[in-house]
Nucleic acid binder design. Sequence first.
DNA 1: AAGTGGTCTAGACCACATC
DNA 2: ATGTGGTCTAGACCACTTA
Lengths: 253, 253
Amino acid sequence: MGTTQLESVPEPKYWHLKTVLTEALDSEFSVGEILPNERDLAARFGVARATLRQALEQLELEGRLQRRRGVGTTVAPPRVGVAVGTDPHAWPGAPGDAWRPVDCTVALPPGAVADLLETGRDERVHTVRRSRVTHGRPVAADLLYVPDASVPDLSAIDAASGAARARAVLRELQRLELEGQDQAVELGSASAEDAKELDRLPGAPVLVVTTRYYAEDRTAAVSVATYRADTCRLTFGDAGDVEIHHDPERRAS
Amino acid sequence: MGTTQLESVPEPKYWHLKTVLTEALDSEFSVGEILPNERDLAARFGVARATLRQALEQLELEGRLQRRRGVGTTVAPPRVGVAVGTDPHAWPGAPGDAWRPVDCTVALPPGAVADLLETGRDERVHTVRRSRVTHGRPVAADLLYVPDASVPDLSAIDAASGAARARAVLRELQRLELEGQDQAVELGSASAEDAKELDRLPGAPVLVVTTRYYAEDRTAAVSVATYRADTCRLTFGDAGDVEIHHDPERRAS
DNA sequence: AAGTGGTCTAGACCACATC
DNA sequence: ATGTGGTCTAGACCACTTA
């Protein structure tokens, strides 16, 4: 027979498709270039559109593609390095931090946050919404939870509203002496609210960074920041802006 | 008319399904319990199986469910906190680290790694495979890339093979004075090789932690560790084992 | 209005684990 | 042999952007 190799472990079509597309992206496309639409691509590869989409979804997850409804699929730029754990001795809102306060409300935090703060599950806390922009693009949305016990002077806060109120909470928080912080990173999916802020669809993959701020021997504040997983590489330490390239010239010897 | 509210922004079915299932998981199911199979669930909710699966996929991504082919879908335990950035002054393989050396080969590293090491793209390096296990479950697979320039005594390495050779490379590496390290976290998908190690299917979402080790004023080694994104919460700082709970008792007042 | 990606359906078959 | 989740198909319609 003419078959040279029996496919003992048949690779799924979408997996093979992904490999082929990855190689094509490395060699034949440049950043920002638009791909043919899904129907054409599927036809070209001789697969159903759903199968093609399975491959595209993975490539988008890996940050190689960007898809926008009504527009098309483009080759994504390399992920941007976003510094996350730079200074363990600075409060949020300290001079030079990357966040822009948006507004502030008093609301019931998620149960998991209430547990970290050791407030009761029915205790409302100051909730500061912040937004982070890099290279002109929104990369993260953040909610900072601050219990009453962590803001010495309430009157300065209640006098303001909107972004001014958010800044007031941060200012009051900075009066405490920060004793330390720790962080955790996990995978999540964007809530409808975060999605809007990040210019993505709800459910889009995000990296959730939870930071606990310690002061006065307790957890004085908790921040939950959601970063776009498709476009961000979170950096810890001092290598913030090192670029990681996809092999533009893979020529194995 | 009897309609109380015009659905001005019709929520996708799978999104609503996910919400319903999340609430059910919080209130009616306990960890390890098996759900009805996908065909039954789809019928019960009156949707196509593909739509039901879209909801299940998201819940698995969020670490709420675990699905195994041939077995079924079970309620996942809370993610385990895995310490990642504990000691910035310790080499890999130092006493007490969480990794088990598996084997070691000499191979051409990925182009991105070669760039970090500042070796040529056609230069082969020692490649140590390691594996990390927590609570009896594999949580991460790792490749440590070490150029010849970072191992003073090659003869001690070439004499061994397998895990012994891996340990020899780590031992030689520890003779250098570590000047610092930095890390980056990003989302990826498991290669076929990693998938096997992690007991997942290829393409499964993983958190990729890239660590650069500095010594002698250069990058002396690079580690690329892939953690199961569904089961792991990466912790930085000293809050390793704090548990995060899903609200088991959400009773809003 | 036309073209894009996003959602959804109702099937089919396959790979795998278990009995 | 049976039952599970994983892959795949060939359609349909919807939401959104752009012209």
